[in-house]
Computed example of a mutant assay.
Amino acid sequence: MTDWQASKNWFDRGGQAYARFRPEYPLGPARFLAETARSHKCAVDVGCGNGQLTAQLAAYFDDVVGLDPSADQIANAPAQQGVRYICASAEKLPLPDRSANLITAAQAAHWFDLPAFYAEARRIASDGAALALISYGVLRLPGDLQSRFDRFYHDEIGPYWPPERKLVDRGYRDLCFPFEERQAPQMDIQLAWALGDFLGYLSTWSAVQRVKGTGREDILNDFARDISRLWGDPTKTQPVSWPINMRIGLL
């Protein structure tokens, strides 16, 4: 990529792009969640996508199950010993009663029918099982990159976000969470990305796909041009970070 025009395919979509560009969690969240669980026989990751958190839980639990309603996402989850993936919804978990010591939902709970999911979580939870809703907030960039990104995120594609996005931006603080809650430590995702990585990540956003679907590709192209100019050398890496938010309760 030598200029912004070489990145005009940045809004390609699909599970393969999601698996390639979505930021991976650091090891801290999985380790903390394992410490919260009273037993380590089984962890269940609901709305697992391509298994970014699911795979990390395998280091702490004997059996890890990743569940997602999207067959495309499951197909892009890497095979790993001790991890199995099942195409299933959050509202109908295909697991036995009282079988899960930890139930997680990472960057997914805002799509759930929460009462139905909570009922299923209670059903499959073992005594003292932990439930964690995990999300990461709006990304942070250095200097002028942040200013241009803020305008794009809040003003230009802001109207195209589904209402559920506000729940993510607020760290799920507005979600009903009827459990005995535990405090989580402050953690962040910190990466160094080249321009192509950054634009590829944005391509996985639902708002970007909606912009494209309405024929307003000029919004995307103008932003790609501006951010490319500010970025400079497209192979140069820039620090990118996201705050990790967790709501953890005991069932």
Rank of each mutant, 00 (worst) to 15 (best):
P162E: 01
F112Y: 02
Q186K: 11
Y18L: 03
N76E: 15
D226M: 08
A37S: 10
F179G: 06
L230H: 06
L251H: 07
M246Q: 10
C48I: 08
R38S: 12
R98Q: 15
I189Q: 01
W231T: 00
L27F: 11
P185K: 10
Q80D: 09
H154W: 08
H154A: 11
L33N: 01
D222C: 12
D127V: 13
L167H: 11
Y153H: 13
L114Y: 03
D144R: 14
W193Q: 03
T235L: 12
L57W: 02
Q16F: 08
V240D: 03
E164A: 12
K41H: 15
A207I: 07
F179A: 07
V240G: 07
R170G: 09
L95M: 11
L220H: 08
D169N: 13
Y25D: 03
A6R: 12
G249A: 02
Q190G: 06
R173Q: 12
Y118R: 00
Q146Y: 09
E35M: 10
I244M: 01
D3S: 09
R22A: 01
Q52P: 05
H154R: 14
G143S: 05
G14M: 04
Y118C: 00
W205L: 13
A17T: 10
Q107Y: 04
L27D: 15
C87T: 13
F149E: 03
E91Y: 02
V46D: 00
S70H: 06
V83K: 05
F223G: 01
Y85Q: 01
W4H: 15
P142A: 06
N101F: 00
